[in-house]
Design a protein around this nucleic acid. Structure first.
Length: 707
DNA sequence: GTAGGGTTAG
């Protein structure tokens, strides 16, 4: 249902029809620097003594009086109206025009010094004992006069949600008449958000009400974004809906935060609803909201929706920034549209932006996902040539791409690069990709070596590492080690996910019948329903319900990205156990559930069998079904096209022994079929209608041919 | 960095 909403509103005209087209309403947010005009006020805001060595600057409405030590100002920047004899005497006062660049510079310097001191104070507080006494001691020692503004900066820079409330309490005691107490609460909420402590947020909110402090929009958007970060979309909604009862009307920032909260939690229809509301209420829609929308569409698989947002931004004259481009690149990567990623990258550089590491990571992923390995490696080369500042994440993105494409040598070269960079430490992701590469290549000893290196570096095996090892031992026919690895997963209290189950099932398809029992035990622990279905298949037991229905329910319980892997492996298992009827039943079920699509195709000139996404067992089953269908067509006198073809695909990955083409080459020969590998069409086996027909006749009546 | 929202991997 929600997805209908996306499609129906994703066209540019309906999505953005009510957005005002004047660019002024989209102008970038004007941060009110006036908030910091305190430095021009005669107030004592800068006389706070937090450090015995701070600069003391006395300010007057029209003139700035400086007391030593005086910041040095270069001659070029001095206004000719100024006295510059100040540098001689430490006690002299001079008058500086507050509007002059020099005064501005002095103010900035003074503010910077104060800010630095307050940040240090926040850090000290973060690591003190969470007691009122310790907090008081530290704050008392830092100076006697604490102003509200300073309190805001301290809390805003804290990261410990156990201590922040104590600090807030201290400030509430010490600041006689806070003018905007809500701000003190709001920055404290931010600390809870940093710690992902939503319970703490709700507790603090109650406290705030008890003190009679009225929440404002900032309070709500902070709470909503905390709920979002804590993956509590319902809480985000709940708080959003509470706003009016506190006299708050959502504004552009709240809408943007909520659109993001809805989008991230998969409530896309809700997000678009809100977006509609934001538009009709004529809220300014800024770059951040646009990037949220692009990301939301990209994650939902509506890639044209992402592009539409980008196009509309252009139409409206909102200049896309780096985040927009990076988000778009990521969406095009998910869409497996590397050419479009290239175009967007080009548009980005043309607009004068130079790629940052996120850009490169998105590009590498985009190319990797589409098996454009060479292009991905070119990006790597470019980054190296540019002397790009590498980080662990970027290296890991490269390694993950290598793992996807089977670039084993390249991966180890990149790993060496990473270690010699001196700045990037391998982490659990790094080791995980390397272990995957070794596992897919069937290199057990190397996988074990990397695993040890990982453990020595202080990382626990993750589900990804252990799943790779299951595959690795499975390939090597070391069933007991598969079981051991699986049990390790359970010992670490890791819940085996769909991918892990799919991997176990895949291993079973490579295991001898005698050893299958051990693996069924594992599978049953991971997924009871799947385990018992497989036990039924292997042990040829009676099933309570009907097989197709059970299997269908099972498939629907899996996430989309693993459905095909499950179906492939189950069919492989059936083929290995010589249960061809079950294999055909599963293939048919796969077609019904659209796990497989367009396996057979017919045109005027050619009938084809497309096997690209099928495992070898599933492909052999599909061939079996196709041959039966062709035989029926022949018997019913249907006209055959001049050409018949089987497309196995040419598998762009470099891992050995996975190619369907080689499996089919020998199988088709075994069947004495007239299909032969096309020399000029990679991945195709072709034959003529005449050869096909005589072969089909020979197959269906062997006794006739023998006679 | 300056009381609120955005990019960041299997």
């Amino acid at each position: 249902m929600g997805y209908h909403v996306i499609t129906s509103t994703s066209s540019p005209s309906s999505l953005f029809s009510s957005i005002p087209s004047s660019s002024s309403s989209f102008s970038s947010r004007n941060f009110n620097l006036g908030n910091f005009a305190f430095s021009l006020q005669p107030s004592s805001s800068l006389s706070l003594s937090l450090s015995p060595h701070h600069h003391r600057i006395l300010l007057h409405p029209n003139h700035v009086s400086l007391h030593e030590p005086l910041p040095q100002v270069s001659k070029d920047h001095q206004d000719s109206n100024f006295e510059d004899s100040d540098e001689k005497s430490s006690k002299s006062f001079i008058w500086v025009n507050p509007k002059s660049p020099r005064a501005k510079q002095l103010r900035k310097k003074s503010y910077d010094a104060r800010y630095t001191t307050l940040v240090k104070l926040a850090n000290t507080l973060d690591s003190c004992n969470p007691t009122e006494d310790d907090v008081s001691d530290i704050l008392n020692a830092s100076g006697d006069k604490i102003l509200e503004q300073d309190a805001v900066i301290v809390l805003n820079n804290m990261a410990n949600s156990h201590i922040a409330p104590l600090v807030l309490k201290y400030f509430q005691r010490r600041i006689v008449k806070p003018t905007r107490e809500v701000i003190l609460y709001n920055v404290t909420f931010k600390v809870f958000r940093k710690c992902k402590d939503f319970d703490g947020v709700e507790k603090l909110f109650d406290e705030m009400l008890q003190r009679g402090v009225k929440p404002d929009n900032v309070t709500f958007s902070t709470i909503i974004s905390c709920a979002r970060i804590c993956s509590l979309p319902n809480k985000a909604m709940e708080w959003f809906e509470k706003m009016p009862s506190f006299g708050c009307e959502p504004d552009d920032v709240t809408y943007s935060a909520m659109i993001d909260a809805y989008g991230r939690s998969g409530h896309i229809d809700m997000a678009l609803n809100l977006y509609d509301r934001a538009r009709t209420e004529k809220w300014r829609i800024d770059t951040v909201t646009f990037s949220t929308l692009i990301k939301m569409y990209g994650k939902a698989g509506n890639y044209d929706g992402s592009l539409n947002v980008y196009e509309e931004m252009k139409v409206l004259g909102v200049k896309p920034n780096m985040v927009i481009f990076n988000t778009l690149l990521d969406a095009m990567g998910r869409a497996k549209r590397p050419w479009q990623a290239k175009i967007i990258y080009k548009e980005m550089t043309n607009s004068g932006l130079s790629p940052n590491w996120v850009t490169y990571a998105s590009l590498i992923r985009a190319y990797g996902r589409s098996r454009y390995g060479e292009d991905a490696l070119i990006v790597y080369k470019e980054m190296k040539e540019k002397g790009m500042n590498m980080n662990t994440h970027l290296y890991n993105t490269l390694l993950a791409m290598c793992a996807d494409l089977g670039f084993s040598d390249e991966a180890f070269e990149i790993f060496e690069d990473m270690k010699s960079s001196g700045t990037c430490q391998p982490d659990s992701w790094t080791f995980s990709s390397l272990i995957t590469i070794c596992s897919c290549g069937g290199n057990v000893s190397e996988a074990e070596r990397i695993l040890n290196e990982m453990i020595e570096a202080g990382f626990e095996p993750t589900i990804f590492v252990l799943t790779s090892l299951v595959q690795c031992y499975g390939k090597a026919r070391r069933t007991d080690d598969v079981v051991k690895t699986f049990n390790q997963l359970l010992d670490l209290d890791i819940n085996p996910d769909d991918r892990c189950c799919a991997c176990l099932l895949n291993v079973m398809a490579q295991t001898s019948k005698e050893e299958l029992g051990k693996l069924i035990d594992c599978l049953e622990k991971a997924n009871q329903k799947l385990g018992s279905l497989v036990r039924y298949l292997v042990e040829e037991l009676e099933l309570d319900g009907d097989f197709r229905k059970e299997a269908s329910e099972l498939f629907n319980s899996f996430s989309d990205e693993v459905k095909r892997a499950f179906c492939n492996s189950l069919i492989d298992l059936c083929v290995n156990l010589n249960l061809m009827d079950r294999a055909c039943e599963l293939l048919d079920l796969g077609l019904t559930l659209e796990i497989y699509t367009d396996i057979q195709s017919k045109s005027q000139t050619q009938w084809s069998l497309h096997l690209k996404s099928l495992s070898s067992g599933a492909a052999l089953t599909a061939l079996h079904v196709w041959i039966n269908d062709l035989t029926k067509a022949l018997e019913s006198g249907e006209d055959f096209p001049p050409l018949l073809g089987i497309n196995t695909g040419h598998g762009k990955h470099k891992y050995p022994g996975k190619g369907l083409a080689s499996v089919f080459d020998s199988h088709l020969k075994e069947l004495k079929s007239p299909f032969h590998e096309a020399p000029d069409k990679a991945g195709w086996f072709l034959t003529t209608n005449v050869a096909a027909k005589s072969w089909l006749v020979a197959r269906s009546s062997p006794e006739l041919v023998a006679a």
